[in-house]
């Protein structure tokens, strides 16, 4: 199930990045994965970056905040923002601020399409500058991703086996 080429990344302009991913689940269910802390905590994070806080006020104008803590170095990574548009099940727009670097706010637009039981998520990230967009891309290199890779399979198994 977990081959590594299911998520497509494109850079349609200097200040955007777009992720596209299919899920074998109905659109409302995929949409709801962002709507409550109970769901979010089940799939965001990894054994090293553990979610330690998640608050969601899921309404337009409502705020959200997630904190991921690095178990290796203890550093907390806070993310927060505001919901701009909530159109269940096809569109979700929110701002996202990486709290450790003030001013780094971007706009995330999730669009969901369903065809034959497969829901396609298009996640468009709009940045205030090219420097920030590139910096975010680069951050993927800096978070011990290889270690996360190694532990993912065990984690996925434990999730699947959960009662």
């Amino acid at each position: 199930m977990t081959n590594n080429s299911k998520t497509q990344l494109t850079l349609p302009s200097d200040v955007e990045l777009v992720l596209v991913r299919d899920f074998r689940a109905p659109r409302p269910l995929v949409f709801d994965m962002w709507s409550t802390p109970e769901h979010v905590a089940r799939w965001v994070g990894c054994p090293i970056l553990k979610m330690t806080f998640c608050e969601i006020d899921f309404r337009e104008g409502g705020r959200w905040r997630w904190v991921l803590e690095n178990r290796d170095d203890g550093v907390k990574h806070g993310f927060s923002g505001e919901y701009r548009e909530i159109v269940r099940p096809n569109r979700l727009v929110f701002t996202e601020q990486y709290e450790n670097i003030p001013g780094r706010k971007r706009l995330v637009t999730h669009t969901l399409d369903e065809h034959g039981g497969v829901t396609t998520l298009t996640s468009r990230h709009l940045y205030p500058s090219k420097e920030y967009r590139d910096g975010h891309l680069k951050s993927g290199m800096q978070t011990g991703l290889d270690a996360m890779f190694d532990r993912l399979d065990a984690f996925a198994l434990s999730l699947a086996a959960a009662p």
């Binding site: 299911k6 497509q8 990344l9 992720l19 899920f23 994965m33 965001v44 993927g140 290199m141 993912l152």
Partner: peptide, 18 residues
């Protein structure tokens, strides 16, 4: 690397959706 980090996140979501 960035794409792979999202792929990891989304495959966790896959597992959870299943």
């Amino acid at each position: 690397a960035f794409r792979a980090s999202w792929e990891r996140q989304f495959s966790q979501l896959d597992t959870y959706l299943d």
